[in-house]
Design a protein around this nucleic acid. Structure first.
Length: 301
RNA sequence: AGGGGCGUAGUACAAUGGUAGUAUAACGGUCUCCAAAACCGCUGAUGCGGGUUCGAUUCCUGCCGCCCCUG
């Protein structure tokens, strides 16, 4: 059995995942793009050893903050984890807030090995965004359906894909857009004002727990160039180190950015998955367990 | 108390005697290897009253509020 727990940040996914793992003999695969970094603990709201309560967690502390990590790795390794856990007769709990990662893992997304032509990449980086859009119109017109002309990052990505052999639109056309696993999807949700309160409190707590010190420990030359440092809770420190913002301002920015993230996460899960939502302001746990058991019953028939 | 200044969107700032802009927030959305990223859409304002004027957010004036200086 595979249970997937998703939802916006600060809805209590990690906690629920552990509860479910204990109750249903499961192990947890984290679908979070930031908690993979060993050095990022407080700011990523990473689950602690104690909170894991002895349940195995995969993809937590998976790599260092100066290493590269992406969806492809997550999908590839994640599927191995799933097989492994199931083969040992245990259940899989997937828990995380990174929508693309969860979707790539569960659906028939395909990521090929690609050889990146650095010269071509460099060539593209020198083009104007408008030129990039024109190029994509000529090379892979169908892909422009889902890429806005201003979205430089995605224009370059689609051009690189076409250059490496397979057009983005061709690849997507081959897929069935179906889930490849029979999974139970659980979404956690709350009223916006309730969630925002939780977020604000959590950020205050992060500072009490030593977020400033954690940042100081990993601070080094050009640290903010790192992909991992684009994470909320860390990137906001850059103006502080430049001497143009106070810690109080940094904290407010972290809160604001986290609220905006929560909204985007909600939008993604809500519109990309067919999920049943449970409000964390109600007695959701018993309802979830009831639904899981119903599903188990069906499967055993 | 006297003198001066300022009141424009939730916030920061523009502008004009004739349709009040920008940024940001808020709200909504896109998503196939940077996704806590990148990008898009949209709502929203001239403190209150009087006067001049065809027309006032703009000019004059009273009130209210805020700031600075002097005592």
């Amino acid at each position: 059995m595979i249970i997937v727990v998703v939802g916006a940040t600060a809805t209590g996914k990690s906690d629920l995942a552990v509860q479910l793992a204990k109750k249903y003999n499961g192990e947890i695969i984290s679908g979070d793009s930031i908690q993979v970094y060993k050095e990022l603990n407080i700011g990523s709201a990473k689950i602690t050893r104690e909170e894991m309560q002895g349940i195995p967690h995969y993809f937590i502390d998976y790599c260092h903050y100066d290493e590269d990590y992406n969806v492809k790795v997550f999908q590839e390794v994640g599927r191995k984890y799933i097989e492994d856990i199931l083969s040992r007769g245990k259940n899989v709990i997937i828990c995380g807030g990174t929508g693309l990662y969860i979707k790539a893992l569960l659906y028939d997304y395909v990521f090929h090995e690609e050889e990146i032509d650095e010269n071509y990449r460099k060539l593209l980086s020198e083009k104007s965004t408008e030129q990039l859009y024109q190029m994509l119109c000529e090379i892979d017109f169908n892909a422009t359906d889902t890429i806005h002309p201003n979205n430089r990052q995605r224009l370059i990505r689609a051009l690189l894909m076409a250059h490496s052999g397979e057009k983005k639109s061709d690849r997507i056309a081959k897929q069935e857009h179906k889930m490849i696993y029979d999974a139970i999807l659980i979404g956690l949700n709350a009223e916006r004002s309730y969630l925002y309160n939780r977020i604000n409190q959590r950020v205050d707590l992060m500072f009490e727990q030593g977020l400033v010190e954690e940042m100081q420990e990993i601070y080094k030359e050009n640290v903010f160039q790192l992909q991992s440092m684009k994470a909320i809770g860390y990137k906001e420190f850059e103006p502080y180190y430049l001497g143009i913002q106070t810690l109080e301002e940094v904290k407010e920015h972290i809160k604001k950015n986290t609220r905006q993230l929560a909204k985007r996460q909600y939008t993604f899960f809500n519109n990309q998955f067919d999920i049943k939502y449970y409000s964390i302001q109600e007695d959701y746990r018993s309802q979830i367990e009831k639904d899981i058991e119903e599903k188990l019953h069906e499967q055993n028939k």
